Simulated scan of single mutants.
Amino acid sequence: MIFWVVLGLALLGLAVAAVVWLVRSLTRDQARPGLPAADAAHEELRRRYAAGEIDREQYLQAKVDLER
Rank of each mutant, 00 (worst) to 15 (best):
R46V: 06
D65W: 03
H42F: 13
P33F: 09
A10Q: 04
L14I: 15
P33Q: 11
I2P: 09
I54Q: 00
F3I: 12
H42L: 14
Q58L: 07
V20P: 02
I2E: 12
Q30M: 07
D29R: 11
W21S: 09
A17M: 06
F3G: 01
D29T: 09
L66K: 00
L14F: 15
W4S: 14
G13W: 07
F3N: 07
V64T: 14
R46L: 11
I54K: 00
Q30Y: 09
D55R: 02
L66E: 00
P36S: 13
V64M: 10
T27M: 11
E53C: 03
V20G: 02
Q30P: 12
V64R: 13
A31I: 14
Q61F: 02
A10I: 13
L22D: 08
W4H: 11
V23S: 02
P36A: 10
L26C: 07
A51D: 14
P33E: 13
R32C: 08
S25T: 14
A50I: 01
W4K: 15
A38W: 11
A62D: 14
P33V: 14
A15I: 08
V23I: 14
R68Q: 05
E57L: 07
A51N: 13
A51G: 07
V19F: 03
R56T: 04
F3V: 12
L22I: 08
L14G: 15
W21T: 11
V19K: 01
D65E: 15
L26F: 09
R32L: 10
E53Q: 12
D29L: 08
K63F: 00
E67L: 04
E67M: 03
Q58S: 15
P33C: 07
H42C: 04
L35N: 08
E44G: 08
R24F: 08
G8M: 13
R46G: 06
K63D: 00
E67R: 04
Q30G: 04
E67A: 08
Y59T: 01
V16K: 03
Y59R: 01
Y49K: 05
R68F: 04
L14S: 15
L9Y: 10
V6D: 02
L26W: 09
G8Y: 11
P33D: 13
V20L: 10
L45M: 03
A62Y: 03
I2N: 11
A18I: 02
L22W: 12
P33M: 10
L22A: 14
V64W: 02
D55E: 09
Q58N: 12
D65L: 11
G34R: 05
R24S: 08
V19N: 03
A10W: 07
T27E: 05
R47T: 06
L11T: 08
G52Y: 02
Y59S: 01
I54L: 00
A10F: 15
T27N: 12
Q61I: 02
V6P: 02
V64I: 14
K63C: 00
A10M: 11
E53G: 03
Y59V: 00
L14W: 13
I54R: 00
A62C: 06
V23H: 01
L9W: 10
W21K: 10
Q61S: 12
R56H: 07
I54V: 05
R32D: 10
D39Y: 01
L60P: 00
V64C: 01
E43A: 12
P36T: 13
L11S: 10
A41Q: 04
S25G: 02
A62S: 15
L7P: 06
P36D: 13
H42I: 08
G8Q: 09
L45P: 04
R47Q: 09
V16M: 09
